[in-house]
């Protein structure tokens, strides 16, 4: 029995990745991820020079909503409300960061970039490749991205040009929403190696005492354990339509959650909030929980159950139904109650 996972030609010690964000902005964190036996790390997203302002961060940047400190990370309903921004250094700093990560890490390192102009995407992706990254993730769906860029124009062009310009695998990170399967199909058609589903949603909250939006008066990224339910759905939808692998991400707190993603067709799973609230050893705990499940089920690897739950999916027409009578149907008793 082993957690070894094949993904995009890479051999990983675990299907569990550290997702792009505050747990992947510094070389020391790569060491921590490696010690905890993460499969790979997606580095924090670097923004093109045009979005230089996204290298500066609002303070505070995070608030935990519905967070009960007494049960802390065992809670299954909190939200991490965030104004996460891009990598804080220049692009030169980021290239050097990738080089140093690659020099010290034994686990795969995936660069993550954001731009709007196709030439910027191309140039940045090439640099990520030259610096030795094992793959590049195109972060086209951050909840903090500028609104002036749209999937149909900017991002389709980005996928096309990046795929043509680099030899390393290209992951496309998509946001949740009704259009996600269509976007997966587009990404696959233009040669993406994999999709990451899904980025965080954009959400909002208000402080009723001051009658103002909380923190900085603008929408924030929201995620948390509850977020897995819409992403699981999107992974299931996508897995039935595309052939390229899926890296599931959203709301993963335990090995159980990883197994759910895999049962719906994901090859790897990216985690982050759980590291933020429960610490770095969440990675090894999740690995151990997956191993325990594999042992209990007599399985050698997750590959044996990838997509298995999809086989049991049905269509609305085939759902077994029973009459809503007696209370709601033809025998409703309004007549007896004199309500004609």
């Amino acid at each position: 029995m082993s957690l070894t996972t094949r993904f995009l030609g890479l051999t990983l010690q675990s299907p569990v990745f550290v997702a792009s964000g505050p747990a992947s902005h510094d070389v020391n964190q790569i060491r921590l991820a490696e010690e905890q036996k993460a499969g790979a790390v997606v580095l924090k997203t670097a923004c093109s020079d045009k979005y230089e302002h996204m290298r500066s961060w609002p303070r505070p940047r995070y608030k935990l909503l519905d967070w009960d400190k007494q049960i802390a990370g065992r809670s299954k309903s909190f939200s991490l409300y965030s104004y996460e921004q891009g990598y804080s250094g220049t692009l030169e700093d980021y290239w050097e960061f990738i080089r140093v990560c690659k020099k010290h890490a034994t686990i795969p390192i995936i660069g993550s970039i954001f731009a709007d102009d196709a030439r910027d995407w191309q140039e940045m992706a090439k640099q990520v490749e030259q610096c030795g990254a094992d793959a590049v993730e195109l972060d086209i769906s951050s909840p903090h991205r500028p609104g002036s860029v749209a999937f149909e124009t900017t991002f389709v062009a980005a996928i096309k040009i990046v795929v043509k310009s680099v030899k390393i695998p290209v992951l496309v990170k998509l946001g949740p929403g009704h259009e996600v399967v269509q976007q997966c199909l587009v990404a696959e058609e233009f040669g993406a190696s994999a999709v990451s589903l899904c980025n965080r949603m954009r959400g909002f909250d208000v402080d009723i005492e001051s009658q103002r939006p909380i923190l900085h008066g603008y929408y924030a990224g929201i995620g948390g354990p509850w977020a897995k339910h819409y992403t699981l759905r999107h992974v299931a939808e996508a897995a039935q339509e595309i052939k390229i692998p899926i890296s599931g991400t959203g709301g993963v707190m335990s090995g159980e959650d990883v197994i759910k993603y895999v049962l719906l067709g994901a090859s790897t799973v990216q985690i982050l909030s759980v590291i933020m609230v429960n610490g770095w050893d969440s990675i090894s705990r999740i690995n151990a929980e997956i191993e325990e499940y594999l042992t209990r089920k007599g399985l050698n690897s997750l590959e044996q159950i990838r997509g298995k739950a999809l086989e049991a999916m049905t269509s609305p027409e085939d759902i077994i139904r029973w009459s809503g009578e007696p209370k709601a149907g033809a025998r409703n008793d309004w007549k007896k109650r004199g309500m004609e």
Partner: peptide, 14 residues
């Protein structure tokens, strides 16, 4: 608001 919980945590505004 904050008084409902024992531990208010981060204030809602900067």
């Amino acid at each position: 608001g904050n008084e409902q919980t024992k531990y208010p945590g981060l204030p809602p505004l900067p």
